[in-house]
Design a protein around this nucleic acid. Sequence first.
DNA 1: TTCGTTGTTGCACTTTAGTGCGATAGAATT
DNA 2: AATTCTATCGCACTAAAGTGCAACAACGAA
Lengths: 139, 139
Amino acid sequence: MENVKNLIQQRIKEKGLRITPQRYAVYANLLARCDHPTVEQILIEVNQDLPIASKASVYSALTVLREVGLVREILLDEGITRYDGRIDPHHHFVCVNCGSILDLEWDNFKDLPLQNLPTGIKGTSYEITVKGTCDQCGS
Amino acid sequence: MENVKNLIQQRIKEKGLRITPQRYAVYANLLARCDHPTVEQILIEVNQDLPIASKASVYSALTVLREVGLVREILLDEGITRYDGRIDPHHHFVCVNCGSILDLEWDNFKDLPLQNLPTGIKGTSYEITVKGTCDQCGS
DNA sequence: TTCGTTGTTGCACTTTAGTGCGATAGAATT
DNA sequence: AATTCTATCGCACTAAAGTGCAACAACGAA
Ligand SMILES: [Mn+2]
Ligand SMILES: [Mn+2]
Ligand SMILES: [Zn+2]
Ligand SMILES: [Zn+2]
């Protein structure tokens, strides 16, 4: 509990950012959940108990957290920007029924042959999106 | 030339759509190019020689072509909806330098193991996005 | 060729993600 | 504790993708 709090604060600090309740709340919220929320969802959850961060602050926090590499954007469905607290390489699963987005571990699909691409093209990284049905929606 | 024209018209027709100059132009443009244009880019190219389709019509044509499965949307970068005239399974390459988007053939990465996913999750399809540098931008 | 149905047009309008601002509050360093 | 610099706030605003509309045009079946 306390350790997690310190870890989060340290992460923010060592990136040269000031630790503010708003940044802490946004980052902690993102780390605590395994879905991939939109700005709107983060805004709501972060203010659920008591108001702590305005819309402008949540945008600001996400922008700065993304700039220092603590957080990343994910673009899976049409015009919706989602955020991911995991920055290590991994893949994503999208349920075609309920739309939920789950992490898939890197090891599931590793060592793909990036050598065999058309001439002149140098692939340096890749990411896979798997579609199907999730636990809840399983046929 | 003439054959291609007939093929395109037939494709539209056999999907139960009326053939109009606007739909033809949009679909033909999408088939003729190997990039993955935005609505705006299609609108410009289609009207380059002489005005043939309004903004509303291009949107309308793309919507209806997508509904019948002749065309698909691609979402690779932030909030930008692009269109793809290829509907067969394939992957995409994104140049991190110039942003160009190229098709990668399905066979490059086929038979990925969709069995080893977490319990309860059934993967039915996948798509890979490779990032790197393209022919032009090669180091 | 005629006619009914459907598509197109231009433009104003909606929608929604994201930003700018100036005053206030608060973090961190001394 | 004092100081300084930076972040937050609410809210109005921007920007840009996409839609609604109603008059008009034109596709295609017969
Ligand atoms: Mn993730
Ligand atoms: Mn493609
Ligand atoms: Zn589901
Ligand atoms: Zn390039």
